[in-house]
């Protein structure tokens, strides 16, 4: 078991990963279950400020599970390993604390909340974040200005912002709404779980632009996707392959092209042939 893990981390400690500076997020040997079934089986990943990491991998590999575990979804149980975020033990924190520490997840399947207006939802979220950081509540005018600014950034229809959270939104509208929320909350680590799927070409460009405009030297993103195309817009520093609960291969954006061309079989084979 240990040897396997060492082999994994050898793949990871490629020269690419050996950058200077403090890590924003460090995941070590992470194991997680759902309903008693192990999904993450010893996952390692390090993300430094300013980096964009793409995670690819076959259906059911555990990509969304990783996102859920990082954001503290109570359906998942962490059995082994550690996650450090900005020097703090992330696994000790409640979901809302993680969010207020600066983690944001753009859900693969955003949730509809009938009866809770977008405005009320966003105002509550912003104020909770401010409270967490010891700031006063946002003023009505500042809040409206912020909403307007961020709506423009993702070119979101005004009508959507006046409705209940995601209620009756189309698939694409929901994804755009995720990026809008991300823009509002300005996270230091954003995790985008298949934000590109379900978006038309224009929307994809708008959403990717939004993400790029939010990029800063001190924040980072993990972009989960099935399609190399997104990576034309959001250019990753690293591409990882998540397979069977582990990161089994890491590389540059060229790896994404290779996957697009060759699929995952060769990776699966490599994994199976490994000692």
């Amino acid at each position: 078991m240990n040897t396997t893990n060492n082999n994994q981390s050898q793949t990871l400690t490629s020269p690419l990963l050996e950058r200077l500076g403090e890590a924003l997020l460090t995941i070590k040997n992470l194991h997680a279950n759902i309903n008693g079934k192990e999904i993450l089986k010893g996952l390692d990943l390090t993300v430094r400020p300013g980096e964009i990491h793409a995670i690819m991998g076959p259906n059911g590999a555990g990509k969304s599970t990783l996102a859920s575990v990082l954001t503290g979804n109570p359906a998942f149980e962490v059995t082994h390993g550690s996650v450090t975020f900005q020097g703090k033990d992330l696994l000790e924190l409640a979901p809302e604390q993680r969010a207020n520490e600066g983690i944001f997840l753009s859900f693969q399947y955003p949730v509809e909340i009938p009866g809770v207006s977008m405005v009320n939802f966003m105002r509550t979220a912003i104020n909770e974040q401010r409270k967490y950081r010891g700031l006063d509540q946002i003023s009505a005018t500042d809040f409206l200005r912020l909403m307007r600014e961020k709506k423009e950034l993702v070119e979101m229809d005004n009508k959507l912002a006046n409705r209940s959270v995601n209620e009756g939104f189309s698939g694409g509208e929901k994804k755009r709404n995720e990026i809008f929320q991300m823009a509002m909350l300005d996270p230091s680590l954003s995790i985008l779980d298949e934000t590109d799927s379900g978006l038309d070409i224009d929307a994809l460009r708008i959403v990717a632009n939004g993400v790029n405009k939010l990029k800063r030297p001190n924040n980072a993103s993990i972009v989960i996707t099935h399609y190399q195309r997104l990576l034309d817009y959001i250019i990753p520093d690293f591409v990882h392959v998540l397979y069977d609960g582990k990161i089994v291969k890491s590389g540059t954006k060229d790896l994404a092209f290779e996957l697009e061309e060759r699929g995952y079989d060769w990776i699966k084979q490599e994994v199976e042939e490994a000692p």
Binding site: G72, A94, P95, N100, I113, F121, E128, Q129, Y132
Partner: peptide, 12 residues
């Protein structure tokens, strides 16, 4: 829905 809100920083 509750988790979705929490993931935006809203306490449980």
């Amino acid at each position: 829905a509750k988790f979705y809100m929490q993931s935006r920083g809203i306490p449980e």
